[in-house]
Write a protein that binds this DNA or RNA. Sequence first.
DNA 1: ACTAATTTCTTAATCGTTTTCGTAAAAAAT
DNA 2: ATTTTTTACGAAAACGATTAAGAAATTAGT
Lengths: 337, 337
Amino acid sequence: MTIKEFAKLLNISAATVSKAMNDSHEISAITKKRVLDLAEELNFQPNPNASSLRRNKNKTIAIVIPEIANNFFSKAIDGIEMIAQQKGYHSLIYLTHESSTKELGIIKHLMNGRVDGILASASLETKDFTHYNDLLDKNIPLVLFDRVCEEVQTAKITTDDFHAGYIATKHLIDTGCKKIGFLAFSDVAYACRKRKEGYLEALSEYKIEVDESLIINCSNDMISNFTLINNLLKKRKKVDGLFSSAENLAILSYQICSELAINIPKDLKIVTFSNMPMASYLNPSLSTITQPAFEMGKEAASLLFLAIEKPRNNYKDVFTEMKSNLFIRNSTKRIFK
Amino acid sequence: MTIKEFAKLLNISAATVSKAMNDSHEISAITKKRVLDLAEELNFQPNPNASSLRRNKNKTIAIVIPEIANNFFSKAIDGIEMIAQQKGYHSLIYLTHESSTKELGIIKHLMNGRVDGILASASLETKDFTHYNDLLDKNIPLVLFDRVCEEVQTAKITTDDFHAGYIATKHLIDTGCKKIGFLAFSDVAYACRKRKEGYLEALSEYKIEVDESLIINCSNDMISNFTLINNLLKKRKKVDGLFSSAENLAILSYQICSELAINIPKDLKIVTFSNMPMASYLNPSLSTITQPAFEMGKEAASLLFLAIEKPRNNYKDVFTEMKSNLFIRNSTKRIFK
DNA sequence: ACTAATTTCTTAATCGTTTTCGTAAAAAAT
DNA sequence: ATTTTTTACGAAAACGATTAAGAAATTAGT
């Protein structure tokens, strides 16, 4: 049903219906009620494409993320979608599967005005960020979250990665670790670099010399990650603590420890960034740095809507570091020998 | 940039550009190449709203699911999005948070033609399914997956819930359980009813009398679920095996066992439906029935696109039961006393 | 060489809204 | 009572693509 047909039912013009549904002051309360009541009754909704075309607004945002089968991102989406639904917006979702080619394709595609704004988390592979800057040149609001990058001058939501890295490493030192390895999920990602800096800061504070062979630069390839971590852990005496910057690397480490019969936490203590709800029930229970994924999603979305609805607002300067939490569990339990 | 402005750059008409970009046979190869090359260079894309309005097609589908911070649904979305991206479609995501009111609102909203088709998984609360039938009346393709319902005559993708329930229960019996409880995540959901029927079938086959007090009808309220399961497990001698129809109920059971100092698997064996990647690393490792979530998503999406692109196809008759797998781990380990 | 058929492009109508502008009617001001 | 202002609505022109129908240019057929 078109707005014209609908209008005919009430013997008024399409213009009046449109204005009534948009709560224009030009329309009397009486007429508004007649329109709204019938619209409710017949579930009449103006064609969104025609509306978007005319208004040049689609009430739609895009969420571009590396992966979804991931406790952090799925919770973040939960937060984003909640705010979007509150605001009456629709959320398109795009997965890059950590491929910069896919990311580039998706972002370039989104320049056609299909969405009013974009929430993105860069893929691991991505080293060139010009596509994000192109978005900004086209005045499409963009908020980066978690996987942010310095090259793009726009709003960013992250966690206190440096501090968390420091705290995690300090915790390992406090439980008696002397040779602490660091598993980097990326050697370029801003968040990972910050986590590493926190790690280095803690080592420095406790006068522990940095051993580069204990710093493992992992990638998106789980096979090669396996090899890397396996090689590290095989020379067991060289490492007694592991700070992992990503959940999946910790899982991999659990697997490798199980295969190599390395006892956690006796032989090796592990603390990791993770949003896993089951961390308490692992064998042994896993000490984690947990990011406020849901809140980050909400925060990022709120900021995006601010940018969309108040174009004068200089949202681009926002840089929010949200607080993550250290949950101490048995994987970093101090063992007195 | 509009198609007119773009056309002017090549000294041809907008119509020609449109046809060239849609690979019409009316346009010469030479012109097509000129158009496509410039479009590539300038990243020109026709306004999607104008296009959708004219064509009455949006190249967009909706995914309506109860929750996303959930291993099954996030993997299913992964599969759906992959197929959608291959087909050049966009995926809108809507979360109902298990609320039938929200579900109803979302589905009613989607009747305005914003999407070409819908993939849905009903919320637990939903008992009235007329909104889905309304969609079908409006000729909007609909594929239900996992949380399907008999009341709606459309395509459905599920798992072999009856068989899986039977196998899981049989496995508990084989490992020595005599008093097996069943944790139902819903008393109405089709999938859960089937799982229960499989459970009952196995009991019957082994001549184990059904004890209704061991069948716990859980809900979406985790607080009351806690009470229900806690009450069941406190009278410990009454139950020595637990078949859980949903992951979160198993997690809750682990928690309760830990609090009540019930040893798994010695005092109680547990097997559950779950897509948790960490099942092997739990304490004890958790025996699971695992659904092919990713493949289910792909299958559901493929079917939806078939319905969208071949309107004559009677996709509505499709009812696919995909095979789930039983992974036997330590939570159901036989203990010889 | 002339007509018919085919190829390739253009013009113009159309999709269903929103919004500007204009105009009655009603209310307020004189 | 007349003018001015305000209120409430309608007519028509956008928005930017697609496509049916028509026209020019080319090729084929006789």
